[in-house]
Design a protein around this nucleic acid. Structure first.
Lengths: 219, 219
DNA sequence: ATAACAAATGACCCTTGGTCATTCGTCAAG
DNA sequence: CTTGACGAATGACCAAGGGTCATTTGTTAT
């Protein structure tokens, strides 16, 4: 499959970049980092492999760009929920975070390989952009959390988000084993080791927030 | 470098396997999964690459075997600490788990890539052995946790261990970024995003355990 | 119509996990 | 001590995939 049209204007280049990200996202649903190949992404876009490298200089940069978008979207969603009216307590905050996270499979699977895999083989510029965005958004969302949970000290909203990040990463990995392990875990006696991402995340978050509240109000 | 001696007896083969695991562990200290190569492991053992494949049929199997050993050792250490006398509460349990975990860098770094990377490309037999060991040991250690924390229901010790696993995985990834990201995070304004594995793990665990206690005693 | 630019291409390189026909220690039998 | 057989060890080889770059070719300004 060959593209007869060339992206000359910046606007066209942006559109092509968009297309690549969209196709990569679609493929990501059914691939892992190891099994997602640049050749396949290119083929899905109707481009040659070499062309991909005009838009993303490594496989990691492509997926990190995707992660950056999905993460920004997650912050939007969480901010929006946290701005809802009514009575807020630790349990509701835990359920709110879980609620916007649980069904974002593409995001959580990317986060799960994030720091370990995506952060090699990228330019410092992109690393800076990604971390800068994270810092800004986490700061803003963290302050929302502090407003909803008055027992939190200044800056502890960010601490919560780091713990959320850690739990998402770890639980996603436990919940999505490879096919061989999946089969082993299907054995009846292995039931205690199976993890259901959604409930596991939400219950762990609620417990952690309740514990933080208790720590900070006991003193 | 060439080995002039051949492992004919089972005993010799076991010793050679041991040597490979030891050298792989030493290399693991300074490599990631991607940068640790089978050729290098072989060279460190004084073996040809092909010989490695007589003992471990894939790179994943080699590292999973290592993880299995280190994990069993971790269970030993934790059991031993949990058997110590004195008054136990949620905070002490959290510190105990953190204490035996924090300095086990090789283990926690392997766990961090565990389910995501190591569980592809392995035989079902090894997956079964690994998960079987995990189930047995986690059951036993889980019961110890339940004895120390009477507010836990039967089986909830295992739940705690799953959450520990998730936190270890996630926090290890956040604490050990690649060199590019490490440099970005070294900027002063990035301080809020830096994670110190030991304190982060222990404080998160303690908070979570306190929260679980509160959930179960409030009702 | 044409020259100049640069987007797109795909053949190519390199690394690395994994294979296998061959080599050659090792040991037991004669 | 010699020899034959076993199988451990080898390293040349293969395949896959990330990444490169000289060349091709669509596009546009003149």
């Amino acid at each position: 499959m060959v593209i007869k049209q060339r992206a000359r204007k910046d606007e066209d280049k942006l559109a092509r970049r968009r297309r690549i990200l969209d196709e990569a996202l679609a493929l990501w649903d059914e691939r892992t980092f190891a099994t997602l190949t640049m050749a396949e992404v290119a083929a899905c876009c109707g481009l040659a492999k070499g062309t991909l490298y005009l838009y993303f200089t490594t496989k990691e940069e492509l997926l990190l760009a995707l992660l950056e978008e999905l993460l920004a979207d997650w912050f939007d969603a969480l901010d929006s929920v946290l701005d809802e009216a009514g009575h807020w307590d630790a349990a509701r905050v835990g359920r709110a975070i879980g609620g916007v996270t649980v069904y974002r499979t593409a995001l959580t699977r990317l986060l799960a390989i994030g720091e370990g895999t995506l952060e090699h083989n990228i330019s410092e510029a992109q690393a800076r952009a990604y971390k800068g965005m994270t810092l800004t958004r986490a700061g803003s969302t963290g302050r929302r959390l502090e407003r909803r949970l008055p027992f939190l000290a200044a800056g502890e909203g960010m601490l919560i988000l780091i713990r959320v990040h850690a739990l998402v990463t770890g639980l996603r990995q436990l919940a999505d084993p490879g096919p061989i392990v999946r089969e082993v875990l299907a054995l009846p006696e292995m039931a205690p080791l199976r993890v259901d991402f959604g409930p596991a995340l939400t219950t762990a978050l609620v417990a952690m927030l309740l514990g933080m509240e208790r720590e900070r109000t006991a003193a």
